[in-house]
Write a protein that binds this DNA or RNA. Structure first.
Length: 438
DNA sequence: AGCACA
């Protein structure tokens, strides 16, 4: 009934085609072997091997029909059959006129990378860690993560193809540094290809996706707990609730860390509203308040474990405070409310880089060693699997935010999303202030 | 030993 097909699936004499169908091939025969076989008769423009249930069929496409005819004719009258690896290969004209290329292996470079995180506990890799790793090559615009059959994957969006390529070249098939992973997590390696995407759609900041160009993007309801704070890690487990207030403790404080130094360091990520410094357990601690959680998250990510001064001095350890709004009673050298103008304009001048009283760390005879731009931040890389990018120093945002305290002006809002220049990030040391690095 | 892939 339904057997009245005008084109039977095959006949014993196919009309000529520049595509040849090959069968009885040795298992998993290579493209090269097919090209070798067809080359004497003409230009092989395409091949497809490992076709069929047994993967023992293949196609060869010639540039010209006459070349295909030449090959068929030759073997039709030859005493020696066509052979690959000593095995007789049967060939005939294909019933198709061209090989459709499903090979995506020649993936075209783009600004978005598809990253597969391989490893038994790949899901433990947080979006923050991915951000940190890929930020070494340039500003990361957006990240989305998802589960596919391939495993735990992420799409990482850069400004441009060049930046994405440099990240891909440096990181593909390498492992995430151990020190970036929780202690119990085993090795996680990265497989990177280009994605066809050019601009990811990120609706919310969540444990699965981030848009770093839009700090005011709403936080996903699923990532907010009863206290209104982000409390979910990428693996869904509870983590330290994020807060707009950071608690900084300073280790190895060889040089004075003043309110102004802290303000400068933390203002790089957004407007600092308030700072309170205090001594605890013989060390210095400070609470730094931002207007929003996202800014604090970015600052914490970028600064955690890094040193204010070169040489391992004044190493910062950051955690989220339980505070939401600091109560600053008095503006002095240990506490400051930058949102409340005071007479005399003292605050503005100090924000803009005035040296701390008594000489800043960069002044005097005991200035810290100069910033070493090429220095690698963080602990030494673990042996094997990881080449630190040349410019993987401090992760800095592309904009410096400062409150404009002049009368009649509100706080200076950050620039619109997408204004960040492409390319790797570089330290921007405020004038007069000490550089900071690992 | 007889025509794939999305």
């Amino acid at each position: 009934m339904a057997s009245v097909s005008s084109q039977p699936q095959f006949r014993y004499t196919q009309p000529p085609s520049k595509v040849l169908h090959l069968r009885n091939l040795p298992w998993e025969c290579t493209e090269e072997e097919l090209i070798e076989l067809g080359k004497p008769f003409g230009k092989v423009v395409n091949t497809k091997c490992n076709v069929g249930a047994n993967k023992n069929q293949a196609f060869i496409e010639f540039a010209d029909l006459n070349q295909a005819i030449a090959m068929i004719s030759y073997y039709a009258s030859s005493s020696e059959p066509a052979q690959i690896r000593g095995k007789t290969v049967y060939l005939q004209y294909s019933n198709r006129q061209e090989i459709v290329n499903n090979k995506t292996t020649a993936d075209t470079a783009g600004n978005v990378l598809l990253v597969t995180i391989e490893g038994d506990e790949a899901r433990q890799v947080s979006i923050e860690v991915l951000h940190l790793v890929f930020s070494a090559f340039g500003f990361v615009h957006k990240i989305t993560t998802f589960e596919k059959t391939a495993g735990f994957q992420a799409l990482i969006q850069f400004s441009d193809t060049e930046t994405a390529s440099s990240a891909k070249n440096a990181l593909d098939s390498r492992s995430i540094p151990r020190y970036l992973l929780p202690e119990h997590v085993g090795p996680c390696s990265l497989r990177i290809t280009y994605s066809a995407h050019t601009d990811l759609s990120v609706k919310f900041q969540s444990h699965r996706s981030r848009d770093y160009t839009n700090q005011y993007l709403p936080v996903a309801p699923s990532a907010i707990d009863a206290t209104g704070q982000l409390s979910v890690g990428v693996d869904g487990k509870k983590m330290e609730p994020e807060s707009n207030v950071l608690l900084a403790s300073i280790e190895n404080m060889q040089y004075a860390v003043t309110l102004d130094v802290l303000n400068t360091v933390f203002s790089a990520f957004g407007p600092v509203q308030k700072i309170a410094m205090f001594d605890k357990n013989g060390g210095l601690q400070a609470l730094i308040q931002y207007p929003d959680v996202q800014t604090a998250v970015v600052a914490k990510e970028a600064l955690e474990g890094h040193c204010i001064y070169d040489g391992g001095f004044c190493k910062l350890h950051l955690s989220y405070s339980r505070h939401v709004d600091l109560s600053i009673k008095v503006n002095n050298d240990r506490s400051r409310d930058y949102t409340v103008p005071i007479h005399g304009g003292m605050i503005q001048s100090s924000i803009l880089g005035q040296q701390p009283p008594g000489g800043g760390p960069m002044q005097g005879g005991n200035a810290p060693p100069p910033y070493n731009g090429g220095q690698y931040p963080g602990p030494p890389p673990p042996s094997g699997g990881w080449a630190p990018p040349q410019h993987m120093h401090m992760q800095m945002p592309m904009q410096n935010y400062q409150y404009n305290m002049q009368p009649g002006h509100g706080a200076t809002p950050p620039g619109p999303p997408g204004t960040m220049p492409p390319g790797p990030m570089h330290m921007q040391n405020p004038p007069g202030m000490p550089p900071y690095s690992q």
